[in-house]
């Protein structure tokens, strides 16, 4: 996880994402609602990222490129991301001693992304890879 800005990422479910999920996870609409991260304005400025631009999020478990979204609230050091196949790529698969799988909160490195937002096809290919 070298480089980038360290953030605590919290996942959530949004109504528009839920709607797009019901319409189908393979649609552009689902990707547009899911492959995003809401960032604090100061974090965006220090990262040199504008709303709508790609951001690479990386953890020890994996990395994805999603679109930056300017949050309406101030929450420096914290980012919010819809729970989706994109956020799942960043989660640790380790089950703690308490037997609980953490799906809501994780630390990630965020940096300006290059290229396009990760597609659902790329995520599927990663899951199926030998």
């Amino acid at each position: 996880m070298a480089g980038g800005r360290e953030l605590t990422v919290i996942t959530y479910r949004g109504i528009f994402q839920e709607v797009e999920e019901a319409r189908g996870m393979y649609s552009d609409g689902y990707r547009d609602q899911s492959a995003v991260v809401a960032l604090d304005g100061r974090d965006m400025k220090e990262m040199g990222v504008e709303a709508g631009e790609p951001v690479r999020l990386a953890t020890a478990s994996g990395d994805v490129v999603v679109a930056a979204k300017l949050s309406e609230e101030d929450h420096p050091g914290v980012a919010f991301m819809p729970a989706s196949p994109w956020s799942a790529q960043l989660l640790s698969g380790d089950v703690g001693e308490d037997g609980f799988l953490e799906l809501k909160r994780f630390a990630a490195r965020a940096s300006p992304g290059e290229g396009e937002v990760t597609t659902i096809g790329e995520i599927e290919a990663g899951i199926k890879a030998p």
Partner: peptide, 16 residues
Amino acid sequence: SDPAAVLPAALARKLA
């Protein structure tokens, strides 16, 4: 159910 969409990628790969 669609566990591969929500489980950590490492577990989704095990599931696959």
